[in-house]
């Protein structure tokens, strides 16, 4: 029973982590809480669903479409909204408010086009086979989610750690101005970050759409709230934190549904979050950005 719950928690937590990874990447590099990330995640899922039902793409094709569509959307948001605010050197709350507006636009545009009702991916998109190991059932979907998420996260972490590009990004996270003086193409890397982060969000959108078997315009909202919880839990701007925070939230939710009751699922997540903020506002791994006179 417990082992089964842990498997469920792992697959759910992986999607949370994947979503939060993009979210925290944008905060770490651009210094912006991008509250349109939930909407971008939702748009990616819709793009993939359209590609599957109109073009008959297989699952991997749908994932690529979601990554590309969301990625380009993220890039456009950066170009049209975040870049002008950067150029103006607006205080960090201003871009946050602007991205709230972007989120409202995207959510309501999708709702206007596709309606507020749930839509679904075609059933045959994912094999419904189940693997049983010592009495624990793992569906092909869960296994796929876990493998894909870990692969993408490993790829991203490795790229940040080992490549020249990753080193440049970490330099920007430290100080954009110093990075610029060192000859790093800061603006270009901002665009790249927006693209990759949004793309990961799109993939997470497809995975959640498959996992809960429903796409709806407001799906990004609850995900965004969870993303906020995850990055605060893990420490804002910290990649490992997003990973561990995501898994932890998945675990907390699944276990609270199993042992406390389904209505308290969100209460557990947010109660936990509120407590963390009061006791350790920097999160598990983060460093608090504070001015010391």
């Amino acid at each position: 029973m417990l082992a089964q719950q842990l498997v469920n928690a792992l697959s759910l937590g992986c999607v949370y982590a994947l979503f939060a990874l993009g979210f925290t990447l944008i905060f770490g590099v651009l210094g912006v809480i991008n509250l349109s990330h939930g909407a971008v995640f939702m748009v990616g899922a819709y793009a993939a669903e359209q590609a599957v039902s109109h073009l008959g793409l297989p699952l991997w094709g749908a994932l690529i479409v979601a990554f590309a569509f969301s990625g380009v959307l993220g890039l456009v948001i950066d170009l049209l909204v975040l870049r002008p605010l950067r150029a103006r050197n607006a205080p960090h709350l201003i871009p946050m408010i602007a991205t709230i507006g972007v989120g409202i636009i995207l959510t309501n545009a999708i709702q206007g086009i596709f309606g507020a009702q749930n839509i679904r991916f075609p059933e045959q998109l994912v094999s419904n086979r189940t693997i049983s190991v010592e009495g624990i059932d793992v569906t092909a979907l869960e296994l796929g989610i876990i493998l894909l998420s870990f692969m993408l996260m490993a790829l991203l972490l490795l790229a940040l750690k080992k490549t020249q590009l990753g080193r440049a990004l970490r330099a920007i996270a430290e100080s954009p101005r110093a990075a610029y003086l060192l000859g790093i193409n800061v603006e270009g890397l901002f665009y790249l970050t927006s693209f990759v982060a949004a793309g990961l969000g799109g993939i997470a959108g497809v995975l959640i759409g498959l996992y809960s078997n429903a796409l709806f315009p407001l799906m990004g909202k609850s995900m965004l709230e969870k993303g906020i919880a995850v990055i605060i839990l893990g420490g804002m701007g910290d990649m490992r934190g997003a990973l561990i925070g995501g898994l932890f939230l998945g675990l907390a939710e699944v276990l609270s549904v199993a042992y406390v009751g389904s209505s308290m699922r969100d209460a557990v997540a947010f109660g936990l979050l509120f407590l963390i903020l009061l006791i350790r506002p920097r999160g598990l791994f983060g460093t608090l950005m504070e001015r010391k006179v």
Binding site: L85, G101, V102, I104, I105, N108, Q111
Partner: peptide, 19 residues
């Protein structure tokens, strides 16, 4: 159906052009 889109649009435009 699209009226909230304009709500969002107005918010973004205000932040961008009327700080």
């Amino acid at each position: 159906n699209f009226r909230l889109v304009f709500n969002g649009l107005i918010l973004v435009l205000i932040v961008l052009f009327l700080p």
